[in-house]
């Protein structure tokens, strides 16, 4: 494959993962952190970036050693690689962002079992050359971050009247506390999926609309 073809393949993969194959909205992967850390935008963003770091690093490494992988050791190597980078991310948060590390708590180590990352290692990084795998990692990571921040935006604004800790709604706004509770997370995500499915369907059937 020529270098140009690889580059374009990598870029398409990157863009596709951002929205069209968004890990959360389209593939329903990585649901646990999506629901757990999106009560406010700040932890959601931190979580998204931490996951991006892990998926990019894991994809890089898996792609480098893809020729040496034997079938029965594949999953073990994926898990090991991911676990190492998650530990590094966790130590980083503890050292430099202690407040965020406390809010996220065990959800940082739980990135290890985020099926999104292991799915990318399996489906992309273990088959594709380095550059494609790295771009795929960035795409999936940013896609995940976008989804998290979108959900967190809705929940934080409705649940507390703030966005990124800045007050955006007037003080007479009565916060919908349910948005900050687990129940709000499920319902908001459910309704967001519905909106996305609806928009998708409308776009797919332009003749009827015309």
């Amino acid at each position: 494959m020529s270098a140009r073809a690889t580059t374009s393949e990598a870029l398409t993969g990157f863009v596709k993962n951002l929205w069209a194959e968004n890990p959360v909205f389209r593939a329903l992967l990585g649901m646990c952190p999506t629901l757990a850390v999106t009560a406010a935008v700040k932890p959601a963003l931190t979580m998204g970036l931490a996951a991006t770091f892990v998926v990019v690093c894991a994809n890089t490494l898996v792609s480098i050693m893809r020729h040496a992988l034997t079938p029965h050791l594949r999953i073990l190597m994926f898990t090991l690689t991911i676990a190492v980078f998650v530990t590094i991310a966790d130590l980083f948060l503890k050292a430099f962002l202690p407040d965020m590390s406390e809010v996220l708590g065990p959800f940082v180590p739980l990135i290890i079992v985020n099926c999104m990352i292991i799915a990318r290692a399996e489906a992309c990084a273990s088959k594709k050359p380095l550059f494609t795998a790295v771009m795929d990692g960035f795409g999936i990571g940013f896609g995940f971050t976008i989804a998290l921040v979108m959900l967190a935006t809705i929940r934080e604004i409705l649940g507390g009247g703030t966005w990124f800790d800045f007050r955006v709604l007037p003080t007479w706004w009565v916060p919908w506390t349910i948005m900050k509770l687990p129940a709000g997370a499920f319902i908001t995500l459910g309704l967001m999926l519905a909106v996305i499915v609806h928009l998708q369907r409308r776009r797919q059937k332009p003749p009827q609309a015309a």
Partner: peptide, 14 residues
């Protein structure tokens, strides 16, 4: 629009 994952999540919320 809610079919599938959507309604499941809303149910889970309730």
């Amino acid at each position: 629009a809610l079919e599938g994952a959507g309604i499941t999540l809303v149910t889970a919320g309730i």
